[in-house]
């Protein structure tokens, strides 16, 4: 049969394939451009960007946890103005759509960060990281309350002329309610799941392994949770979903697509194998070829 079509149209973006690195696992792309041309990817997703530069948390910031890893980087980034002036012009020349992950501690900060990214003309979409603590609400994350999230997305929407994705936290009671709130606020698409909050203790030293005590769990260990949440969310929303959580192979990616995802993000796997993304793209094509699948639309949500 002919070469399968891996392209996807998602919230107005045309991606040549459904695979992109997950925010935070790929910097601003420069480090992985040493390994392969970034235009092999469906898109590049940047590290989270805040209004002001952030140094991040004390170290240790990362730790392995059976079949996964914990991280508490603390949104270290050079600030949105530096990113717009230095990183995005470079990324814009790589021949691949660029999705900028935006974060903040207040609604006003999110709005300003997204306004600058949108106005830069150098990004193709925005991904809103709503797992950050809301400093005006006692540090509770924006992404755990449907009302707070809808209001945030609504405010950001007004200054964002680009496709707007909202990245959902899995650390909630019912992710469907959160997903519906993001949709109601005007999101063009959803990405999920962000990391699950975890903790690991060094029993010989009798203290947490991470300096921050807790951190986000990612990697193969979270995959079944992520597949379940992608399935639940795509059952109730009308906007496209990009799935992620422990994707290490083309077969893992196909699993998310069958659960209902339109595309996938690959995070931790980049650390295990810097060539993970191009390998997964090739493996998806191989799976489609072997199973007579002509396009991803044929299998998207096919289990439902």
């Amino acid at each position: 049969m002919s070469v399968p079509d891996l392209s996807v149209e998602i919230a107005g973006l045309h991606l040549r394939n459904p695979v992109m690195p997950a925010s935070g696992c790929f910097g601003f792309g420069r480090e992985y451009a040493r390994f392969y041309p970034l235009n092999q990817l469906g898109a590049v997703v940047t590290k989270a960007v805040t209004l002001e530069p952030r140094l991040g948390n004390p170290t240790p910031r990362v730790a392995e946890a059976g079949g996964g890893m914990l991280n508490a980087i603390g949104l270290a980034n050079p600030g949105v103005r530096h990113v717009a002036a230095v990183e995005l012009p470079w990324l814009a020349k790589q021949g691949v759509p660029v999705i900028v992950n935006a974060a903040g501690q207040t609604k006003d900060e999110y709005v300003e960060v997204v306004r600058i990214i949108s106005a830069s003309g150098l990004a193709n979409a925005v991904e809103l990281n709503v797992s950050c603590p809301n400093v005006k609400a006692g540090g509770i994350s924006f992404g755990v309350s449907p009302q707070v999230l809808e209001d945030l997305v609504c405010s950001v929407r007004k200054v964002c002329s680009l496709p707007l994705f909202v990245k959902l936290s899995p650390n909630v009671t019912d992710i469907r309610q959160i997903a519906l709130a993001a949709q109601a606020g005007g999101a063009d698409g959803l990405t999920l799941i962000n990391t699950l909050i975890g903790m690991q203790i060094d029993i010989r030293r009798r203290r947490p392994v991470l300096a921050n005590k807790t951190g986000g769990l990612s990697g193969p260990a979270v995959k079944p949770v992520a597949v379940r949440m992608v399935y639940e969310v795509t059952q109730v929303v009308g906007i496209p979903v990009i799935g992620m959580g422990g994707i290490y192979s083309g077969e893992d990616a196909v699993e998310f697509i069958m659960a209902g995802a339109s595309a996938v993000m690959v995070g931790t796997a980049n650390f295990t194998d810097p060539f993970a993304c191009p390998r997964i793209i090739a493996e998806i094509a191989q799976f489609m070829q072997e199973h007579g699948i002509g396009s991803l639309a044929e299998i998207r949500g096919c289990i439902a």
Binding site: E31, K47, A76
Partner: peptide, 8 residues
């Protein structure tokens, strides 16, 4: 390789 900012 410098991408994750884990080791600073």
């Amino acid at each position: 390789v410098g991408a994750c900012y884990g080791c600073v």
